[in-house]
Amino acid sequence: MSNNKLFTLAELAQHNKPNDCWLLIRGKVYDVTKFLADHPGGDDVLLSSTGKDATDDFDDVGHSTSAEAQLEELYVGDIDTSTISSNVNNTSPKQTEYNQDKTPQFIINLLQFLVPLFILGLAFAVRFYTKSA
């Protein structure tokens, strides 16, 4: 592992797709693209951690020593620490939220509006029906 390639956080954030996915863990950059399909937690877990420091996400799960060893095989370089703000755990502004089922955002927004409205209408209907009966 004598690869001393340095990447900026902006460069790392560009690798945030299922066919090109990199993670930053403990200051090291890993290309996890080949591992997405095999990840026990699913590819969405890895994709949601791109463009930011994923160290806490990785450590919180409590990966095994074999997982740590497997991670080392995916190493591509180090992060240029001068490109990371003091609040490294926030997602990069360039990172897009991963939408696993590819539902268009306008449908999600519409449902977020209509479902509560429907529930409210149903509550009023039940109250009205029980008062008039």
Rank of each mutant, 00 (worst) to 15 (best):
N16D: 08
P18K: 00
D57K: 15
D44P: 00
P18N: 00
D59A: 11
R26A: 12
Q100M: 05
T8Q: 05
V88M: 06
D31F: 09
T130H: 14
L111D: 04
T33D: 08
T50S: 01
I108V: 12
R26G: 10
N89M: 08
V32P: 07
I84W: 02
Q14A: 10
T55R: 05
D31T: 06
L122K: 09
P104Q: 12
L110P: 04
D78S: 06
L9N: 02
F113I: 05
L74Y: 10
T103A: 01
D60V: 06
F58P: 04
K102Y: 07
A67G: 07
D57G: 02
D38P: 05
S49K: 15
A13E: 13
K52I: 03
Y30Q: 08
I107A: 03
D43W: 02
K52S: 09
R26W: 02
Y30W: 04
L23Y: 11
Q105M: 10
T83M: 07
I84S: 06
I108D: 04
I79H: 05
G121Q: 05
E73D: 15
D59K: 15
A123D: 02
D20C: 10
S82N: 14
L24Y: 13
D53H: 10
D31I: 03
A69D: 07
L120W: 09
A123F: 11
L111Y: 05
A133N: 10
T65F: 08
A125S: 14
Q14E: 08
D38T: 13
G77F: 03
T33W: 08
D60A: 13
F7M: 01
I119K: 09
S48N: 11
L120H: 05
E72Q: 06
Y30A: 03
L122V: 13
A67L: 02
T8M: 03
I107T: 07
V61G: 08
A13T: 10
V88L: 03
L12K: 11
Q95K: 15
F113R: 00
L120P: 03
A69M: 06
N16L: 00
E11N: 09
A69Y: 03
T96M: 02
L23D: 09
T8I: 04
G77M: 09
S2Y: 08
S85C: 04
V29L: 04
K102C: 07
G51N: 09
L24R: 05
K131P: 02
I119T: 15
Q112D: 14
I84T: 12
K34Q: 13
P116R: 07
Q14T: 15
R127T: 11
N99M: 02
V45Y: 13
E68Y: 09
D43S: 13
